[in-house]
Design a protein around this nucleic acid. Structure first.
Length: 801
DNA sequence: CAGTGAGCGAGCTTCCGCTTGACTT
């Protein structure tokens, strides 16, 4: 029988807090929100002041009944959810759902998990802040209304199963706008002038402040430099300093893990979750850069011990972002003295990053000395500038330097050799190199999160899922793209001779970047046209201001919603009635061979090109169709590229008296021969692959096939042991099964194999049929039953530990 | 598990935020 029941959101947090509070307190977790709007379209009673209808979430029923039981027994219930809008709502939903008595309920908050903070919180309880709860209800209701009214418009006007929402639609728009900005970017080039001097055996580079637009101007400049004297005109030495970046928030962690470790945002978050559960780091979903008093002291000790007192510089960071709610600390190691932890290589690397970033944030600034040398040219009024940097004191750079998104070609801080004003320099050569301008970079998952955070759109707990959603809907594709080659000219003045060389460089190579799809573009244009305010980058920021007013008690939540809803809903109705179906149709021109029109359009199976018109009664001839290739957009494809698509399938030649055909299918380019498919690797081109190469690919595939079959069983021919990419595995009919680690083919008997096949096949079959069921009500009850038992099982496991 | 491109049209899809598993490739 417990005297005090404390409810927090996260189970890992519950465990730590229980230790601080002693035996009179039982600490439990509610696992986030326990109630939400009902699933269907009538969750909000619009006619009745937008009265929300809440239901206990399916996967929380077990948790809620457990908490209900414990709260009945307790003398006092302490609601300790996070100190922000969502947290306040969680406490309110708990008090409603558990039927808590106001007299034996207290609301407490703390934003760091330390003993003094918890004890202080317990001494200063308050009541649930209903205004803050109302702000959350407004947020929730608005999001539901927007999402559930806009999405069906898309089903009717674009494609079924699409979705729209306050956050995701703007995220897609960012990608679409960026893509168009890149496509319409006007690439220009200019000649950059760099002179290389020999100073005491070392090379020093000086750059001209301006660039020349044409080769002729660059040539003329070099001509004038022939035989010129170069002297140091001026030397300027300036002290400079660099400060460390603040400790990680969710967003900055995702960015740095992406740049330094190459992790996607989902990977980063799941590794961080593991580190958190092991107690190695503080909570990983946070928008705060704040560190607890204890953490700052702890960091100071570690720094002093490891690097010396002069490396320590305790700092308090404040969050600049308006939308931040700061319910937690920044992400930091729980114990700074642990500069490494046990775990998988990924966990170790992410921990290392978090440790370094947090430690660096508490270290001294780096002291630099910047030298700028101005070099006069005797034949010209222009000057060259050489700059260098010397690190006087490394400070935080000893452990950590933040990286940037720009893969800049600026060479980093070089040291200049000793120089004197008036000194004559020995010229090696002057190079005039043609450089091209670059459009803005495409977003990575992490840089999109950064942008969203800047706009105040989305929250730490939703960044990664949102990025997942827009990809799952097919609005956005994350992929690599090969760059193209282009020529650039280099003019070199050496030994009073000017020479010219044309070099090639690769540009536009993209790795794990976000590209919009045709559907993404169509949906963005459609929504922007009809729902301009919701697609506005500032929409969230402006509704957030209203939510804040509600939280301060200056605005009534359902009045705010009513004001938004009435014009919005009439726009939805109007669009449903008047807007045409969107298919991004575009006429590209006329096919020179047939004289027929070539057009592109987005159809049921994606974008495709068409030669000729649709069949009619008068003209029953069907047009020819070809799917666009990945990376091609209806918006940008040219007539030539579209015609190229119709060159497939093509006959490559004959092998063993049968045709080899090359084409592009669902899974990319392939060859088909004797009704067997062979994928064409990226290194080959479907349009030009020749017979010899095709035969090589077919033969290679045959060898792999031959090696695939390891063992068969006379008892049942459906059962096979096969050789795959990751070693041997079991196959029964069409289903594949994993073998236990270290299994050897010769040890596998029919009986032992069938055991593996039978056990998982039952659960597999259940999984496969579940989503297909149509009778919604029946499945709902069945699912409930299944989930209940699942939750109970895990709960039992936990209490057993 | 690699040809599609209309359509008589059932019933379904969908939001954002707060939490953690339980799955498969």
């Amino acid at each position: 029988m417990t005297k005090n029941l404390v409810i927090v959101e996260s189970p890992a947090k519950a465990k730590t807090i229980e230790k601080f509070l002693g035996k009179d307190f039982t600490v439990r977790s509610c696992y986030g929100h326990i109630r939400d709007l009902a699933k269907g379209d009538d969750a909000i009673d619009i006619k009745n002041n937008f009265q929300p209808h809440y239901e206990i979430s399916e996967d929380k029923k077990a948790v809620v009944s457990e908490l209900k039981k414990l709260s009945k027994e307790a003398e006092m219930v302490w609601l300790a959810s996070d100190e922000d809008r969502e947290g306040e709502a969680i406490s309110w939903h708990l008090s409603e759902a558990l039927g808590l008595d106001a007299k034996k309920t207290k609301r407490i908050v703390f934003h760091e998990i330390t003993k003094p903070a918890i004890l202080r919180a317990v001494e200063n309880p308050r009541n649930i802040d209903k205004h803050l709860v109302d702000a959350q209800q407004a947020r929730r209701v608005l999001d539901r209304l927007v999402g559930f009214e806009l999405s069906p418009v898309l089903w009717r006007k674009v494609k079924p199963s699409l979705s729209a929402g306050r956050v995701q639609s703007v995220a897609v728009r960012l990608i679409v706008d960026r893509e168009r900005e890149i496509n319409s970017f006007n690439v220009t080039s200019a000649y950059k002038i760099v002179a290389k001097f020999n100073v005491g055996g070392k090379t020093m580079e000086g750059e001209l402040g301006k660039r020349f637009a044409t080769e002729a101007e660059a040539q003329a400049f070099l001509e004038k430099c022939k035989g010129a004297d170069f002297t140091i005109k001026n030397l300027e030495v300036k002290p400079a300093e660099k400060s460390p970046a603040p400790p990680f928030t969710t967003s900055t962690l995702q960015q740095e893990a992406s740049r330094k470790l190459g992790y996607g945002v989902t990977t980063t978050m799941s590794i961080a979750q593991k580190l958190y559960e092991h107690g190695f780091i503080t909570y990983m979903r946070t928008d705060s850069v704040n560190l607890s008093e204890l953490a700052i002291t702890n960091a100071k000790e570690t720094i002093t011990q490891n690097y010396g007192g002069n490396y320590s510089n305790p700092r308090r960071y404040t969050t600049k972002n308006d939308s931040a709610q700061e319910a937690h600390e920044a992400i930091r190691p729980t114990y700074f003295e642990n500069n490494e932890v046990e775990g998988t290589p990924q966990e170790k690397r992410l921990y290392d990053l978090i440790w370094k970033r947090a430690i660096a944030s508490q270290m001294s600034k780096a002291q630099l000395e910047r030298t700028i040398a101005t070099i006069a040219i005797s034949t010209l009024p222009d000057v060259l500038v050489a700059s260098g940097e010397v690190l006087k004191f490394d400070g935080f750079l000893k452990v950590y330097l933040e990286s940037t998104d720009e893969d800049g070609d600026e060479e980093n801080s070089k040291m200049l050799p000793p120089l004197k004003v008036g000194e004559n320099l020995l010229l090696n050569e002057i190079e005039a190199t043609q450089r091209y301008t670059k459009a803005s970079a495409r977003y990575t998952e992490a840089s999109l999160v950064k942008k969203l955070e800047e706009l105040g759109i989305g929250r730490p707990s939703t960044y990664a899922p949102t990025i997942g959603t827009v990809q799952k809907r097919g609005y956005v594709i994350k992929e690599d793209r090969d760059g193209k080659e282009r020529n650039f000219t280099v003019l070199t003045l050496a030994k009073n001779e000017i020479s010219k060389e044309v070099k090639t460089e690769k540009y536009g190579t993209e790795k794990s970047k976000l590209f919009p799809s045709d559907i993404g573009m169509v949906v963005t244009d459609f929504l922007s046209k009809h729902f301009e305010n919701i697609m506005d980058y500032n929409f969230t920021a402006s509704v957030e201001e209203e939510f804040d007013k509600i939280a301060r008690g200056q605005l009534v939540w359902n009045k705010m919603i009513a004001k938004f809803y009435s014009p919005f809903h009439s726009e939805v109705t109007k669009t449903n009635e008047t807007a045409e179906r969107q298919n991004a149709e575009r006429l590209l021109g006329v096919d020179p061979v047939t004289g027929k029109n070539v057009s592109v359009r987005v159809g049921r199976y994606g974008p495709f090109a068409q030669i000729g018109e649709n069949a009619t009664d008068e003209n029953p001839e069907k047009p020819r169709y070809a799917s666009l290739r990945s990376g091609q957009l209806t918006e940008t494809i040219t007539l030539e590229e579209a015609i190229e698509l119709f060159k497939l399938p093509r006959i490559v030649g004959q092998y063993e008296d049968k045709d080899i055909k090359a084409s592009i299918g669902k899974f990319g380019p392939y060859l088909i021969h004797d009704s067997k498919f062979v994928s064409i690797p990226k290194t080959d081109d479907v349009f030009s692959i020749d017979l010899d190469r095709a035969i090589v690919l077919i033969d290679e595939k045959r060898i792999v096939e031959a090696n695939k079959l390891v063992k068969v069983f006379p008892e049942d021919e459906n059962l096979k042991v096969l050789n795959g990419r990751w070693g041997i595995y079991l196959a029964y009919g069409k289903d594949n099964y994993k073998l236990p680690k270290g299994s050897k083919a010769e040890d596998i008997t029919f009986e032992s194999a069938m055991k593996l096949v039978k056990v998982p096949s039952a659960s597999k079959a259940a999984n496969k049929t579940a989503p297909k069921k149509v009778a919604a009500k029946k499945t709902a009850t069945k699912k409930t039953a299944a989930k209940k038992t699942a939750v109970k099982k895990t709960a039992a496991k936990k209490s057993a530990k």
